[in-house]
C-alpha cells in the first residue's frame, strides 16, 4: 500500500502492476460515481418521488434498456469502488496475516454474492405483460 495522505487518498504507487491500476480505478470510478450515484439518489427521491416508488415504478424503468444499462454501470462502479476501498481499510487496520486473509475472504465472498444478485436481477427481470 502506498503512503496515505492527510486529507484522504494515497500517493500514486510508483511501480506498475495491480496497485497502480487500482489507484487509477479509484479516481476514474470515483469521478464517474459523482455523477451516477448523486443523480440516481436525487432522481429517485425528487423527480420520481420516494413515496411513489413501487413495483410498477421498477417495471416502467426497466422497460427501457438504457435504464438497465445505467443501473448496471452504477452497480459495477459502486461495487468495485466500495470493495476496493474496503480492501484498503482492511489492509490498514487488520494486522495479523491470518485475520487479514480471513476478513478479505469474507468481504470478497459477500461482494461476489451481492454482485451476482444485483447483476442477475438487472438483466433477467421480466417485465410482466399486462
Amino acid at each position: 500500500m502506498s503512503e496515505r495522505r492527510v486529507g484522504g487518498g494515497h500517493r500514486r504507487p510508483g511501480s506498475g502492476g495491480f496497485e497502480r491500476w487500482a489507484w487509477f480505478f479509484m479516481r476514474i470510478s470515483g469521478v464517474a460515481l459523482l455523477g451516477l450515484a448523486v443523480f440516481h439518489l436525487l432522481w429517485m427521491h425528487f423527480a420520481i418521488g420516494v413515496d411513489n416508488i413501487d413495483f410498477q415504478t421498477v417495471v416502467r424503468r426497466w422497460s427501457n434498456p438504457l435504464w438497465r444499462l445505467y443501473d448496471f454501470a452504477l452497480l459495477a462502479f459502486a461495487l468495485g469502488h466500495g470493495l476496493n476501498g474496503l480492501r484498503t481499510v482492511i489492509d490498514e487496520y487488520v494486522e495479523s496475516p491470518g485475520w487479514k486473509l480471513g476478513v478479505k475472504t469474507a468481504a470478497a465472498l459477500i461482494g461476489f454474492l451481492v454482485g451476482a444478485a444485483g447483476f442477475y436481477v438487472i438483466f433477467t427481470f421480466d417485465v410482466p405483460v399486462s
Binding site: 495522505r5 421498477v58 466500495g82 476501498g85 474496503l86 481499510v89 451481492v114 444478485a117 436481477v121
Partner: peptide, 26 residues
C-alpha cells in the same frame, strides 16, 4: 476530511449492499 472520507465510504458501502438485496427481492 480523511476520517470523514473513511467513515462515509464504509457507510455508503453498507447501504449499497443492503440496497442491492432489497431490489433483488423484487
Amino acid at each position: 476530511m480523511w476520517a470523514l472520507h473513511r467513515v462515509t465510504g464504509l457507510g455508503v458501502l453498507a447501504f449499497l449492499l443492503l440496497h442491492v438485496v432489497d431490489i433483488f427481492l423484487i
